[in-house]
Simulated scan of single mutants.
Amino acid sequence: MTGWRFAGRVVAAYAVGFLMFLGLRHWQAGLLWPEATQDAAVFAFIPAVGGLVFRWAFRLSQRREEGRNG
C-alpha cells in the first residue's frame, strides 16, 4: 500500500470516529457543540493511534515469522 493510500485510510478512519463520538458526546452526554467537538477529537484520536500501533505490531510479527520460515 502506498503512503498516500495509507494516509487516506487513516484520515478516513479518524473522520468516522470523530463523527461518531461527536454525536455521542452531544446528544447522549448533553454537551454543547464546542465541548462535544473537543471531546470527540480526543476520543477519536486515541483509537486511531491504537489502531496504528496494532497494525505496526502485526506487520512486525509477520516479518519475523517470514524470517524464521524463509
Rank of each mutant, 00 (worst) to 15 (best):
W4R: 15
G17K: 02
V49S: 04
R9V: 01
G70D: 11
A44Y: 01
V11W: 15
R59L: 14
E65F: 06
E65N: 04
L24N: 02
L60Q: 13
T2F: 00
G70F: 12
A41Q: 03
I46H: 02
V53M: 05
R59G: 14
L52W: 00
A40R: 01
A15K: 08
R55E: 14
G23E: 01
S61F: 05
G70N: 06
W33C: 05
Q38I: 11
E66H: 00
P34L: 02
A15Q: 06
L60W: 03
A57F: 11
A44N: 03
V10R: 12
V49D: 00
F21G: 05
F18W: 10
Q62R: 14
G67D: 11
L52S: 13
R63V: 01
W56Y: 14
G17M: 03
H26I: 06
T37Y: 00
A36S: 07
R64F: 14
E65Q: 10
E65G: 00
A12H: 07
F43Q: 07
W27Y: 13
G23T: 02
A15E: 09
V16R: 03
L31D: 11
Q28C: 06
L32S: 13
A40D: 03
A13W: 02
G3E: 06
A36T: 04
A7K: 12
V42E: 01
R68M: 08
I46R: 08
R64Q: 15
V42M: 09
N69I: 07
T2S: 12
